[in-house]
Simulated scan of single mutants.
Amino acid sequence: MELKRLQLNNHRNYAHLDLAPGPGVNVFVGANGQGKTNLLEAVAMLALSSSPRARRDLELLGPVTPAARIHAEVESAGRGLEVTITLHGEGERVRRVIEVDGVRRRGFDLPGHFRVTLFWPDDLGLVKAGPEQRRRFLNQMLVQIEPGYARNLAALRRVLEQRNSLLKRIAAGEEAAGVLEAWNAELVAYGSEIAGARARAVEQLRPYAAESHAEIAAGEQLEITYVGPPENFEDAVEKSLSDDLRRGSTTIGPHHDDLLIQLDGRD
């Protein structure tokens, strides 16, 4: 896969950019705050459909207009593609429009058309930060290589939003607990697909991670382990109901998974 051309309009600090990368490796050099990371972020968005670092799309809009555009010409699997992401600011909200060769696509349909490998200072959070950062790492990898993963992830987020809303209504006496059955089934179905994909990916990464670490830290043994939902996921969801009602949120599922990183058996 090759990035042939990148155009940015009002993306963060770029009022306008029209870049045609050279063949092979391209190196971007500049002082702090000039936009090197913003440029890489835009490329990553073409692969992931959303920013890997912004909490809200509103952060991506530059000062020129309440809209931003990222457009790229890429070569993938021997054919050319044009990918465009347009952000329309509407007050405190941002509407995202994604197009591939001029055809509108949903966010979970974009990953896989163009793939990237990300590495920047924030990745130190894989070790230093909490589980959310490690789940994000797995998600950013898997949406690009695992068919259906992005769709399952979007579905799981919808299920959690609906289930958590119902938990609050049940706790307030506004709904009966029976309304959760359908959402529990979807939580288990989508959650199992996501957990399975993560477990397979970590199992494949395990020997490469250990070998790479051994090359730079002789004598230390690195081990990575996926910590997913309980083995009997369905029973665990049912047994967690009282705790879920008390907290007003879903306490069992892949949204609480982690990637355990150990050196010589120590976390």
Results as ranks from 00 to 15, higher is better:
192 S>K: 07
193 E>P: 00
193 E>H: 08
195 A>K: 03
195 A>Q: 02
195 A>T: 07
198 R>Y: 05
199 A>C: 09
199 A>M: 02
200 R>T: 11
200 R>W: 06
201 A>T: 03
202 V>S: 07
202 V>A: 06
203 E>S: 07
203 E>Q: 12
204 Q>P: 00
204 Q>L: 12
204 Q>Y: 10
204 Q>F: 13
204 Q>H: 10
204 Q>A: 14
205 L>H: 01
205 L>N: 02
205 L>W: 15
205 L>V: 00
206 R>P: 02
206 R>F: 05
207 P>E: 08
207 P>R: 04
207 P>A: 06
208 Y>R: 14
208 Y>N: 02
208 Y>L: 15
209 A>Q: 11
209 A>G: 09
210 A>R: 09
210 A>T: 04
211 E>P: 05
212 S>T: 12
213 H>W: 15
214 A>H: 14
214 A>K: 09
215 E>P: 06
215 E>G: 07
215 E>F: 12
216 I>W: 10
216 I>E: 12
216 I>S: 15
216 I>V: 13
217 A>S: 15
217 A>G: 12
217 A>M: 15
218 A>I: 10
219 G>V: 07
219 G>E: 10
220 E>P: 03
220 E>Y: 12
220 E>S: 11
221 Q>D: 11
222 L>A: 10
222 L>Y: 15
222 L>E: 10
222 L>M: 11
223 E>T: 13
223 E>V: 12
224 I>Q: 00
224 I>N: 00
226 Y>Q: 05
226 Y>K: 05
227 V>P: 00
227 V>I: 09
227 V>M: 10
229 P>Y: 07
230 P>K: 07
230 P>A: 01
230 P>Q: 05
231 E>M: 08
233 F>P: 03
233 F>G: 03
234 E>Q: 14
234 E>F: 08
234 E>W: 07
235 D>C: 01
236 A>V: 04
236 A>T: 08
237 V>K: 02
237 V>T: 05
237 V>G: 04
238 E>D: 05
239 K>C: 02
239 K>R: 15
239 K>E: 15
240 S>F: 06
241 L>F: 14
241 L>T: 01
242 S>I: 04
242 S>H: 14
243 D>G: 11
244 D>K: 01
244 D>N: 05
244 D>L: 02
245 L>F: 13
245 L>W: 09
245 L>V: 11
246 R>S: 12
248 G>I: 06
248 G>Q: 12
249 S>C: 11
250 T>M: 06
250 T>R: 02
250 T>H: 02
250 T>F: 06
251 T>S: 09
251 T>L: 15
252 I>Q: 06
252 I>D: 00
253 G>P: 05
254 P>C: 02
255 H>Y: 04
